[in-house]
Design a protein around this nucleic acid. Structure first.
Length: 254
RNA sequence: GGCAGAUUACCCGAGUGGCCAAAGGGGGCUGACUGUAAAUCAGCUGGCAACGCCUUCACUGGUUCGAAUCCAGUAUCUGCCA
């Protein structure tokens, strides 16, 4: 997170409004993000989304409809998965939704697809619309030399550790960090929680966080590279700010 | 100085005569992704003009139809004795 002091008075939305105990879902984020965007627009301002979560990003700006969820159905399916294995669940899915069964090879996704079918009576695949903007959006992706990226990520983690990541994690435990379903799996939290448990060391957790961050960065690249709407800029180019501003200006009516 | 052991692909680590370009893991690369997404999952990973060919298992030489695997010497590392 950008420190408040460096935000130059620009309001940042949807930050520091959840506790580590709370779970988040894309569907909830979608509502909150769109509400924030509408609010900013209503004041005649330009909303800027910053972040690297592909699905969350699309949920905010694309036509994405999330069929509901049911904790009981899901819990039952998760039990089935554990007991019967992926192949059996995939076979069950194939019977009701061959399209999804063909695409999915992942335990969590079969569970979700079966859940949606049980809940709505419709195949999960029928909820997949074409990609479409909710409103005109300029997407800008930053990329650069891979070796330098790796160096930067390592330095970033070392800085976080130096600035007290372990203490932060420790202070969040009493606030329910271990109870939530989402926050405790975040990069850094996940690894440093194990230090508190005596199962890891600061050095080891740092290294694992660096590796995890590197792998995450690669997945971000994979996600956004698949979206032809993304305009890629090299972070090293000298006129970076101007180039980004030009992209925005070309799409925003004067 | 003496004795014992180790040396495998980017890293760790199996493999002790043919089924070995060499298990497995890590890392890396590529991809997937619609209510856990900083999550979850899949494929590839010696080289190449690639259903085959070439170069690898510290180095040199030897045994054998055939060696990462056996023998000898050399180098480096480790343990015990001094």
């Amino acid at each position: 997170k950008l420190p408040v002091a460096e935000r130059r008075g620009i309001p940042h939305h949807l930050m520091d409004f959840l506790s580590v105990r709370d779970d988040t879902t894309v569907a909830a984020f979608q509502q909150m993000a769109r509400a924030a965007i509408a609010d900013i627009r209503s004041r005649g301002k330009l909303p800027i989304l910053v972040g690297g979560s592909g699905l969350y990003n699309r949920a905010a700006i694309d036509v994405l409809e999330f069929p509901g969820t049911d904790p009981d159905i899901r819990a039952a399916l998760e039990q089935d998965l554990e007991r019967d294995g992926l192949a059996v669940l995939l076979a069950r899915l194939r019977a009701v939704d061959p399209v999804s069964a063909e695409r999915i090879n992942d335990g969590k996704r079969v569970v979700r697809a079966l859940e949606v079918h049980a809940l709505t009576g419709r195949p999960f695949s029928s909820f997949m619309p074409d990609r479409e903007y909710v409103s005109p959006t300029v997407q800008i992706g930053l990329n650069g030399d891979r070796a330098e990226l790796h160096g930067r990520l390592a330095r970033r983690v070392h800085t976080m550790v130096r600035d007290g990541l372990l203490n932060e994690v420790e202070s969040l435990v009493p606030q329910g960090l271990r109870e939530g379903r989402t926050a405790h799996k975040a990069l850094g939290y996940q690894q440093f929680l194990r230090v508190l448990d005596g199962e890891s060391t600061v050095a080891q957790a740092s290294e694992e966080t660096i590796v995890g961050t590197r792998q995450f960065a690669r997945r971000q690249l994979t996600w956004f590279r698949a979206d032809p709407r993304v305009n890629w800029l090299d972070w090293a180019q000298p006129d970076l700010g101007a180039a980004a501003a030009a992209l925005v200006a070309s799409a925003v009516p004067a």
